[in-house]
Design a protein around this nucleic acid. Structure first.
Length: 562
RNA sequence: UGUCCGAUGGUGUAAUGGUAGCACUGCAGAUUUUGGUUCUGCCUGUCCAGGUUCGAAUCCUGGUCGGACAGCCA
């Protein structure tokens, strides 16, 4: 008996899989595939599909193939193949060498097309694209049959061979399935199976000038690879009768792959369509596909998201058929959750203001012991230099503090993390601007951290020595859009008008010296501020950090409410 | 006046004819040398109308609302 308290409920696809397993369908074999088109970078929506297909395979001792759906040479490019492979591996999945391409099957697909023609189930149509479109009718109105629909098998064979042999220009002819022009399903109204494209293909070069359409290639590729469960998003649901029809024409045994559709992932405060993502890149709203503000996998990686957090996100979000928009707060939650456990803590001051400890000797340095991660004992400790002059966060001092502000203010005490309790005794302002230049304090030598002094103060703040300190560029990233739904615009407005002008702010920060060894990709928690990772642009003498996400901030809530 | 799919708190997702649960968010509190973490509590939900049944989120009928489909894209 299963323990109902620990058994995770199955999603509807797992239920289908388990039922198939119980019925010993396909001999108990589970085989899925992830079929990206190499025409763009993968995004968080793809992560859902990857985790699903690879995850099902893993869970049920099956296999998952990586198959590039490269049937349209004019939009596809090798450069995306490598980035897609990198992203899948980074996410933690492996296709165990089963890296396939729909183009691997062009020959077989062609043979099957010939077979279709011989059966009288396909014909060469030479009406124009526009004519075909018109004669296809509308969803609510039946279409009309093409005048070429009833050509002889011989003529079709000759014409199709001619198409393959490059005798006709692009767009002059297509091969169509002969199904039903009055079907209520538009996709069954004699769908195009092959079109002519005299284009160089990234794998097959100029071997072919006719290319199969998605519907003719996808199910057949699944069949060739022995896929049992072909998981795809909802928009292909209406293709399923055609998927099944195509398979019906070529399958000769009991085995047939089954297409199952699930709802794609949507996230608020961002856009997800390849078209829009591409637009953001091309029009310079972001740096590139891997800009840390992009919902692409490479962008999230650069932002500091971990594979673990993304897998967890997909898991929490679930698999179902209803349309959904996930709150980006959930994405932020999963990465905080993971980074809290693994990210070493460091002290960094983003907006420094100088503190002078008046009763602390000039020239003296004490090395203060600091825990690297309170959530992980194994993370050990490090030593921080403490000196008479320090920097603290300018937000941590207010001359005239509001209620509930527990940090530094004239006459008030705070603890410096891992060091002493200090008291503000005075301030020095810039004569012209009135900005606080120096905060004068005294420290209580009895309160050094680790000495067991029990005196409590309301707040503990972070700091760095002003004498032993490093400068660093810190890129503060925020949500890409100001509205949950970027399409929520004034009438006639453009989604780009909702772009967040403050999605990136760059500051020059003061960071503790231990960070001198930080290397790209590392995650840190800047204490009391947020999680950051070292950017690929970082150099030993010019550190660059990206803010992954802020820490939850109770004070920010209180102060913004007032 | 098409076909297909869907509808459970603010968001997402369970409950498979038998106590509507979990997570995120929000709110309140406890703990805390991070206003972090952790812990506790609270708010908020079965689209509508009929029917079947001892009993319906679940099954049936009819509505309503939302989505997909009219590329020689995938």
């Amino acid at each position: 008996m299963e323990n109902s308290e620990t058994t995770k409920p199955l999603n509807f696809i797992e239920e289908i899989v388990e039922q198939d397993l119980r019925n010993n369908k396909n001999g108990g074999r589970i085989h899925t595939r992830f079929p990206p088109e190499p025409n763009g970078c993968l995004h968080i929506g793809h992560a859902k599909a990857i985790c699903l297909s690879f995850g099902i395979a893993k869970k049920y001792n099956g296999k998952c193939n990586l198959r590039f759906d490269d049937t349209n040479p004019v939009t596809e490019d090798v450069e995306y193949v490598d980035s897609i492979k990198e992203d899948i591996h980074w996410l933690g999945f492996d296709w165990e060498g089963r890296e396939f391409y729909a183009s691997d099957y062009f020959e077989k697909l062609y043979e099957w097309a010939i077979k279709l023609i011989r059966k009288g189930k396909a014909y060469v149509d030479e009406t124009s694209a526009e004519e075909i479109s018109v004669s296809r009718g509308k969803p609510t109105q039946p279409g009309k049959e093409s005048p070429f629909r009833n050509r002889s098998v011989e003529e079709n064979l000759e014409l199709f061979t001619g198409m393959k042999d490059g005798k006709f220009p692009d767009g002059s002819k297509v091969l169509r399935a002969k199904i039903d022009m009055s079907s209520p399903n538009m996709h069954m109204r004699d769908p195009v199976l092959y079109r002519i494209k005299h284009a160089l293909h990234h794998r097959t070069g100029n071997k072919w000038c006719i290319y199969p359409m998605y519907d003719w290639a996808h199910g057949q590729s699944d069949y060739i690879e022995g896929i049992t469960h072909s998981l795809c998003t909802l928009e292909f649901e209406i293709h399923r009768p055609l998927y099944d029809w195509c398979l019906e024409q070529v399958a000769d045994g009991d085995y047939k792959p089954r297409q199952i559709e699930f709802a794609r992932l949507n996230l608020n405060y961002t856009v997800m369509s390849k078209r829009r993502l591409l637009q953001l890149v091309h029009e310079g709203y972001v740096e590139d596909w891997n800009d840390p503000r992009m919902p692409t996998i490479s962008g999230l990686r650069r932002r500091g998201y971990t594979p673990e957090s993304l897998r967890n996100f997909v898991d929490i979000v679930g698999i179902a058929k209803r349309e959904n928009v996930i709150d980006i707060a959930l994405l932020e939650h999963v990465v905080r959750d993971d980074l809290n456990k693994i990210a070493p803590r460091v002290m960094v001051v983003l907006n420094p203001v100088k503190v002078i400890i008046k009763n602390y000797p000039e020239g003296q340095t004490e090395w203060m012991k600091a825990e690297n991660n309170p959530e992980d004992e194994c993370a050990g400790t490090r030593e921080l230099p403490f000196t008479r002059e320090l920097y603290i966060e300018s937000d941590d001092f207010i001359e005239d503090p509001p209620k509930k502000f527990f940090r530094l203010s004239p006459g008030n005490e705070v603890r410096l993390k891992n060091a002493y309790i200090i008291k503000c005794t005075g301030i020095v302002k810039d004569a012209d601007t009135g900005v606080v230049k120096e905060i004068h304090c005294t420290c209580d030598p009895e309160t050094k951290s680790g000495t067991g002094n029990a005196r409590k103060v309301k707040a503990t703040i972070h700091w760095v020595s002003a004498e032993q300190v490093l400068d660093a560029e810190v890129r503060l990233y925020d949500r890409l859009f100001t509205k949950p739904d970027p399409d929520d615009t004034e009438v006639g407005g453009d989604w780009k008008s909702n772009l967040n002008p403050d999605s990136l702010k760059v500051v020059n920060a003061k960071v503790e010296v231990s960070l001198s060894k930080a290397v790209p990709g590392e995650h840190y928690q800047f204490q009391r501020i947020g999680y950051f990772c070292v950017d690929q642009d970082s150099q030993p003498d010019r550190l660059v950090f990206n803010r992954t996400v802020t820490l939850r901030d109770e004070w920010a809530k209180i102060s913004s409410k007032k």
